[in-house]
């Protein structure tokens, strides 16, 4: 950067020189090309398509302006999708992060054989969404699943986990938390390893309790990692698709029809590409707002060393 500035000053104005911005653009060219092809073009195309009725192949046919948007915003079905999405995020993100943090704190002890537990706790990372969902599908099976066997052994009533609109979303959230914990656990454990041990020693010398050192040393120093995990979990949670598709297909009564699944269904089952695009644009706006809020909030709370 300094070299460029020096050259700007040194070179007489009359002489032709390669425009600096253009030069900078050339450096950025590879990423600009990739972004343009794989991100910007699809994004603008989505916005464009959301203003049209399309044929089944996704070609724009009739211009309808903002009709898709007004229809979506007044449709109870879309509002149900929004609600399901928000609830799903609330069910999975806090629970998943707290669980992973708890496991990471446990696994951070220096004990014999702790490696075994670390492997165990992070093992769900190696499971594909499809495979784990199928396992949970069998667990939840109302007739032959183990979930109901446990319920009856405990003397409780059998439940139709995935078939009752009141429990379906939670029943999808539980496997999701289970699947995501492995990854969060691993990252948080890495974060814990990076905290300087001498701080804890000083704490010990000062005679503070374990809980106090957790609150005053561990959590502040772990906050950048926590922010990362919360952000990633949040985005993951918003984009949940596989487990919904396999476990409930958005049902019953649309109680698990999160926006991403609703987009998929509209675009590739019902072939309403226009309306699906409008939903995608709304989801984008929604995530954008949440992310901005999150960063605004975290600027104050997150402690960078």
């Amino acid at each position: 950067m300094i070299a460029v500035k020096d050259r700007l000053r040194a070179e007489p104005k009359s002489r032709w020189r390669f425009p600096v911005t253009l030069e900078g653009m050339l450096y950025l060219l590879p990423s600009i090309v990739l972004f343009a092809v794989f991100l910007f073009y699809p994004m603008f195309k989505t916005i464009y398509l959301s203003l049209f009725l399309t044929d089944a192949q996704g070609n724009a046919q009739i211009f309808v302006g903002l009709e898709h948007y007004s229809q979506l915003l007044s449709s109870p079905s879309f509002r149900a999708s929004l609600k399901a999405t928000v609830l799903f995020v609330l069910y999975t993100v806090p629970a998943g992060v707290i669980l992973a943090l708890g496991l990471a704190l446990l696994a951070n002890q220096k004990l014999k054989g702790i490696g075994f537990f670390r492997t165990l706790f992070s093992s769900t990372m190696g499971m594909s969404v499809a495979a784990s969902s199928v396992i949970w599908l069998f667990i939840y099976n109302p007739a032959i699943g183990i979930a109901n066997t446990i319920m009856t052994t405990l003397g409780l009533q059998e439940m139709q986990w995935l078939l009752n609109p009141d429990t379906a979303l939670i029943s999808v959230a539980i496997p999701t938390i289970w699947m995501n914990t492995g990854f969060s656990f691993l990252i948080l454990l890495g974060g814990l390893h990076n905290i300087d041990a001498s701080l804890y020693e000083s704490g010990k010398i000062a005679g503070v309790s374990d809980f106090y050192s957790l609150r005053k040393i561990t959590l502040p120093l772990l906050s950048p990692t926590l922010l990362f995990i919360v952000t990633v979990s949040l985005i993951n949670s918003f984009q949940t698709f596989g487990q919904i598709d396999i476990l409930t297909k958005g049902g019953p009564m649309e109680s698990t029809n999160v926006i991403v699944y609703s987009i998929f269904k509209d675009a590739f089952v019902n072939f309403n590409i226009g309306s699906a695009s409008a939903q995608a644009v709304l989801l984008f706006a929604f995530i954008l707002i949440v992310t901005i809020l999150q960063f605004k909030w975290s600027e104050k709370k997150v402690h960078y060393q």
Partner: peptide, 16 residues
Amino acid sequence: YNSGQNWDDIRAAFQS
């Protein structure tokens, strides 16, 4: 009995 949307589930329910 409400057996959901899954063909395998309703067949399993019958067979069991």
